[in-house]
Design a protein around this nucleic acid. Sequence first.
DNA 1: CCTATTTATCATTTCATCATGACAAAAACA
DNA 2: TGTTTTTGTCATGATGAAATGATAAATAGG
Lengths: 148, 148
Amino acid sequence: MVSQSGEYALRAVLHIAQQGGPTTAESVADAVAAPRNYLHKVLHVLVRHGVLKSLRGRTGGFSVAVPLDTLTLHAVVAPFDAIPSRQRCILGRGECNEADPCTAHWHWKAVADSITKFFRSTTIADLIEGRRAPAGQGVMVVLGGGEP
Amino acid sequence: MVSQSGEYALRAVLHIAQQGGPTTAESVADAVAAPRNYLHKVLHVLVRHGVLKSLRGRTGGFSVAVPLDTLTLHAVVAPFDAIPSRQRCILGRGECNEADPCTAHWHWKAVADSITKFFRSTTIADLIEGRRAPAGQGVMVVLGGGEP
DNA sequence: CCTATTTATCATTTCATCATGACAAAAACA
DNA sequence: TGTTTTTGTCATGATGAAATGATAAATAGG
């Protein structure tokens, strides 16, 4: 669902966001239980993608570069994993659209939609504040029973 | 979400189920667009797991070993991919249960449930018949808006 | 200016998945 | 019986993600 790197990224951002100022990679590595050198690279990728900003030197470290309620899980994970943005056929036919659906298309669509929605609408702020979901962004996914 | 091997397995079973009698690995490889030798191994794994049965020799091939409306996608994919059966924390804390939930737990739970439900309740028969979902097994997943 | 601290970058290793190729075992059929 | 067709099994090679290790560049503080 989400790669090891993506998971590190998610946990790292969550940790950094909860600290006050710049957080060192070492501190993050401990909190996330990730190998330091490897985490370093992950953090740097997030910097290049504008998710984090970094400061070198003695008082340096990483901090979040954008408002937390603006930062979606998708934005954090995207550099490492391709979360299905367009409809990805579970049977892997490559192309699978509404006009020419595969046998599993409709079955899978509802699930895929809920995954996409989750990553694109949930923010880091949502997770930290422990809210159950962003208000006013409710979406209902209905599996089974009932026609189109 | 599902590995290459798991995808091959799914498409292979779907193809075999639609043929009348035993289907040769060669025929399946063509239909599935998978490398023959590799597919061979995938099919054999499915045989060992009781999903398919095989017959050697001139009139041999693979056929489905169980009733199609009994065969869930989970059963087909499970030998290759671990579909989250128990609650798997998206933050990868390993253990993440209701009693000691992580910050993302409730957010992720609804999505994870829908995925699990999809793989465990959808059968090969459902896909072949093009039904939208097994009747009477509807499940509603609500994201956002509203309290527990 | 020097030194400690921290991020940035590169080269290399490990590992699982995917894939290829060759050969053995069984079964049908002439 | 022997030949062909099929599955079964093993050994080996690519490939990419994950992880490791070493070194360079920047920055703050004494």
